[in-house]
Computed example of a mutant assay.
Amino acid sequence: MTDVTAIISDQPLDEGLVRAAVGGDADGAVVTFCGVVRDHDGGKAVRSLDYRAHPEAERFLREIVTRVAAETGLHIAAAHRTGDLRIGDVALYAAASAGHRAEAFAACERLVEEIKSGVPIWKRQHYDDGVSEWVGL
């Protein structure tokens, strides 16, 4: 599979690009996931997030997208943002398409979980009280 959509960018993500990378005439279901920066975590008010990526993070993302597509036989795509994000900004778009919705939902959820565990991107949360911390290190 050479035409894989797996993007790491410090610019706002293009949902249309990710959505266009999946789906075909045989697909009756397209599932997209939009990970958005929220205003709280663990009972604390969050002001913003700071995502930093390993220089080869896009390669890791491409490998995950390619593997999930190969193992499921479905169209899969993803894009992850880096840099400083504010409340409401999109950090992740993931998409999967299939003949039926259950397959597409399962593949999209699997894709998101594998991205979170396998792509070297680190998140630093900045709280309203001025404290910041790296999450999940």
Rank of each mutant, 00 (worst) to 15 (best):
S48I: 09
F60Q: 13
I87T: 09
V31K: 01
A79M: 09
D41H: 13
A6G: 02
W122I: 02
L13E: 01
G42K: 08
I8F: 02
Q125R: 03
H40R: 12
A69K: 02
D3M: 07
A104K: 04
S48C: 05
T2V: 10
G16P: 06
V90I: 13
V30D: 01
A29R: 05
V4N: 01
L85Y: 00
R124V: 15
V131T: 14
T66S: 14
G118C: 06
E114R: 12
G28S: 11
D10G: 14
V46F: 01
R59Y: 00
A26I: 02
R47W: 10
G28Q: 05
A69P: 11
H54R: 03
V65L: 04
L85C: 05
V18S: 01
Y93I: 11
T5F: 13
P12C: 12
V135A: 04
I64G: 11
D39P: 03
I64M: 06
D129S: 08
R59A: 13
G99I: 04
K116A: 09
V22Y: 04
V37Y: 01
S132M: 08
G118I: 03
E133W: 05
E109Y: 03
V18N: 05
C34A: 13
I115Y: 00
E113L: 11
A45T: 14
Y93C: 07
I121V: 15
S97W: 00
F60S: 14
V90N: 07
A57H: 10
W134Y: 09
K123G: 03
H75K: 14
R47E: 13
D50S: 14
K123P: 00
V65C: 04
R19P: 02
D10R: 09
R38A: 11
A77V: 02
V65A: 00
R52H: 06
Y51Q: 05
S97N: 08
I121K: 06
W122V: 07
L13R: 00
R67S: 15
V22S: 03
E56W: 02
A106E: 15
A96N: 06
A21L: 08
